[in-house]
């Protein structure tokens, strides 16, 4: 493509709004916001063509702090509203910012349907495993037995694994990253932005007020290397002194000491495997304490995009020219009184 226009040269400053950021000091959302503001300029998409749609919750305040178009909607409905926008406006880059309660509890239905349709949305799920804005109730990702204000005797709810859920809906792009690892976060956002169709990104985000340290095992220098599995396309799944191999029982994967297996047994990560079962097996690796947690891109496959198909039908219907309203009204039997 040749253009005589200068490419857009935007900086992080161009994506900062004039609104005062009102998250709690120390919240993981600050890091995600900074990473996003730093990353958006490199997309080369003008501010006016980027839209952030959110639901309700701490994370859903995100759109107010970016200088793009933003719509802070109602609890759980952001994927539905964003779908209407994305389908009707192919020229826009539409992002959904949501949380574990917003996306997986009240809005679970909209999330899975956006993903199975493969709407061209980038969905960022900030998972802090707690309800923050309503002050500390357990969330659908809280661990079993979680003691919170609403579960003084411990939660009896089995938690959702957001990655497994997204893969169950056959999401075409599924990734996980961590708020505190800016470099990794940015690389995952970049891959999501480049993906055509639904991109689902789970971001582990620390709520330092109601669930502080939930992801420390993945962040602390002394534990993280043994706990984190960094997914890199084409690379063997080796971390610390362990690696990932096929589980001889069932259809899954398991973690074993690297020195107990032949190199050829170690799984080479391939994010393009069409069948979601492989990525699903990866998503099942973490233990209850989050050890063996993969981060990075689980799945990145191409399948038809809902927006394109819907618009193509309209374009096809209009190839012979626009509709004739007077002719439409006369459809069927008509008669004339003179």
């Amino acid at each position: 493509m040749t253009s005589t226009e200068l490419p857009l040269r935007l900086t992080a400053k161009d994506f900062k709004s004039d609104q005062e950021v009102r998250w709690c000091p120390g919240c993981g959302d600050y890091a995600i916001l900074a990473a996003m503001q730093g990353f958006l300029p490199e997309l080369g998409i003008a501010c006016e063509n980027t839209v952030f749609v959110s639901g309700i919750g701490c994370s859903s305040r995100f759109p107010y702090y970016l200088s793009t178009y933003g719509l802070h909607s109602i609890h759980g409905r952001a994927p539905a509203i964003a779908t209407g926008l994305s389908v009707s406006r192919p020229d826009l880059s539409v992002w959904v910012v949501t949380g574990d309660g917003d996306a997986l509890s009240i809005g679970g239905n909209h999330l899975i349907h956006a993903l199975r349709r493969n709407v061209n949305l980038k969905i960022l799920l900030f998972n802090n495993r707690i309800y923050g804005l309503t002050k500390g109730q357990y969330s659908p990702t809280s661990e079993l037995g979680k003691v919170t204000k609403s579960t003084p005797a411990g939660s009896a709810d089995w938690p959702f694994n957001p990655i497994s859920l997204a893969l169950g809906a056959e999401a075409s792009f599924v990734a996980r990253t961590i708020d505190s690892d800016r470099k990794h976060l940015t690389s995952v956002l970049r891959a999501a932005a480049e993906h055509r169709g639904s991109a689902f990104v789970e971001i582990y985000q620390n709520c330092n007020i109601f669930n502080d340290g939930a992801f420390d095992i993945l962040k602390e220098p002394e534990t993280r290397d043994a706990a984190l599995i960094r997914l890199e396309h084409g690379q063997p799944l080796i971390f610390g002194d362990k690696c990932v191999v096929k589980d001889p029982r069932g259809f899954g994967l398991r973690v074993v000491p690297t020195d107990t297996v032949a190199a050829s047994e170690i799984i080479q990560h391939d994010e393009t495997v069409t069948e979601p079962a492989y990525a699903f097996a990866l998503s099942r690796l973490p233990e209850a304490d989050l050890s063996h947690t993969p981060i990075g891109v689980f799945r990145n496959v191409t399948r038809p995009v809902y927006d394109d198909m819907v618009r193509d039908q309209i374009t096809a219907a209009q190839t012979a020219g626009p509709g004739d309203l007077a002719a439409l009204l006369r459809t069927g039997d008509t008669w004339t009184l003179s």
């Binding site: 539905a80 994305s86 349907h113």
Partner: peptide
């Protein structure tokens, strides 16, 4: 009536249906 540029989406539920419509209006 796609010829008239009419887009119809059969949503996953009633709430999604109005959400889609509102998103389109916003656009």
């Amino acid at each position: 009536h796609k010829k008239f540029g009419v887009t119809t989406v059969q949503a996953e539920d009633e709430i999604a249906a109005i959400g889609l419509a509102l998103g389109a209006s916003y656009g």
